[in-house]
Design a protein around this nucleic acid. Structure first.
Lengths: 255, 255
DNA sequence: CGGAAGGTTGAGCCCCATCAATTATTGTGG
DNA sequence: CCACAATAATTGATGGGGCTCAACCTTCCG
């Protein structure tokens, strides 16, 4: 029963629900995808760079990161994976992963065989389109990070990231009004922002002084949620939170 | 006749040819996609940020960039688009673009209606898979750039970029052994590398001193092509230049 | 309660930015 | 083909944002 409830409220459903209104059978198709789950402890790699991809993964609970390391130990976090996020959907293409994915917190995940993905796309193309849209959105956040790392100051980067996470946590019901739990150390923030941990500390201090954010005990509060300009010119539209064109016949091969 | 020849040797064919061996009808399907072309002058936007995507684009000739600008004029180039590259393949999802695409040199391009893409995927799923693979590859270069901007020094970034372009120009026949034409100004390099033009000049100077590259009159020579370590730990595999699993039945909805 | 992990603060330095001047290259019209 | 202007590249001097090293403090957790 409890399991039943959890599935009915799966963050993936909430997420895809922004793009398509789902019929009962469609919801069931998703439910089948996530019928089995697995607990994974914190700080565990789900995918290691160089590995051949063999299955897709859906995150049910917890935070994970996509990252790469250089041989001398430098690490860069590409982005954060939140509940409802999927990755390696293209596992059926059998490519080697160019990066690793690791858990930050204890997570519960669904491992999905490649065939289940291709079946889903075949039978429920509207769901496929919604998943594509969500993949596009993730790609947009990659570009946003490139912009940040290349052209924004430390403060702009940090403010932008904290704001982005706040926005992303909304649709999956993982935020509490204007604040949310941030289960990250400053070392991890540093590796995402392209800074050193020391400088992250100073930077966050300045954001606090400027009255942009509150951050203590792993809890972030966005103090000026309407003032998107202040957070590094945050453009909410870039997250493509608009519904897909429902009238469109589903693409055959996903495009 | 000349047109015929050009189509038979389209860089898109060369590019996709790395992933699948194409049958004659498949080649014809591609040829139909690129039957009409259009000349676009240099420094022209093909897509502007915020615009609604309505068509896909295939680049036949010339260089273009994917970029974003901040309101104060700072610009970041996400990546470079080379002959054979496609973009906005997902135009049928009707999303607003979060970035602009502009030509660097005079280009010839093919504008492809969204329906032609979905048709192609429906009828020639193996081609669809190959196109997916190439889209994945582009995403990998985005992550590579994130790693560069976040964790590599100016010299590493520059060496890595010049090496990457050399590798990408190979399969489309746009390089000449160990050197190639680089139609970029240092301002553009700076906007891609997250540096200032002045520092790009100094950085390139140091790479020359170190004997890694030759660069004069818009011509680059990679002086130690085997020494991938030297170019910022360049990992060729990350470009996914391995063939797809041909036995795989084509994914219905592309995944 | 004590140790470990995480966060803050200070001092000094270096990489890269900025400003500015000079040289080289490209492009254009006569 | 040359003169000239416009664009691009180089070089120098100076300054600042972020890095490094190190000490100290705070929080967490067994």
């Amino acid at each position: 029963m409890i399991e039943e409830d959890k599935r009915a409220d799966h963050p993936l459903l909430r997420k895809l629900g922004r793009y398509v209104r789902m019929s009962a059978p469609e919801r069931q198709a998703i439910a089948r995808l996530v019928s089995r789950h697995k607990a994974v402890p914190a700080d565990t790699d789900l995918v290691r760079q160089g590995e051949l991809l063999a299955r897709a993964v859906i995150l049910r609970d917890g935070w994970a990161i996509r990252y790469r390391t250089l041989s001398d130990g430098r690490r860069q976090i590409m982005n954060f994976l939140l509940p409802g996020d999927m990755f390696d959907l293209c596992a059926f293409l059998l490519t080697a992963s160019d990066h690793s994915i690791g858990t930050i917190t204890p997570c519960t995940v669904h491992f999905v065989p490649a065939s289940a993905i291709t079946d889903l796309f075949r039978h429920w193309p509207r769901l496929g389109a919604a998943m594509w849209k969500s993949a596009l959105q993730e790609e947009a956040t990659l570009r946003e990070r490139i912009l940040s790392l290349g052209r924004r100051s430390a403060q702009e980067r940090a403010a932008h990231l904290l704001y982005e996470l706040w926005v992303r946590l909304g649709p999956i019901g993982a935020r509490d009004g204007v604040s949310y739990e941030l289960p990250l150390t400053q070392v991890e923030l540093a590796d995402a922002l392209g800074l050193t941990p020391v400088h992250v500390s100073r930077t966050l201090g300045r954001l606090r002084q400027r009255g942009l954010i509150e951050l203590q005990r792993r809890r972030v509060t966005i103090l000026r949620p309407r003032d998107e300009e202040q957070y590094g010119e945050f453009l909410r539209d870039h997250l493509h939170q608009t519904p897909i064109r429902e009238a469109m016949p589903p693409p055959a091969a996903g495009a």
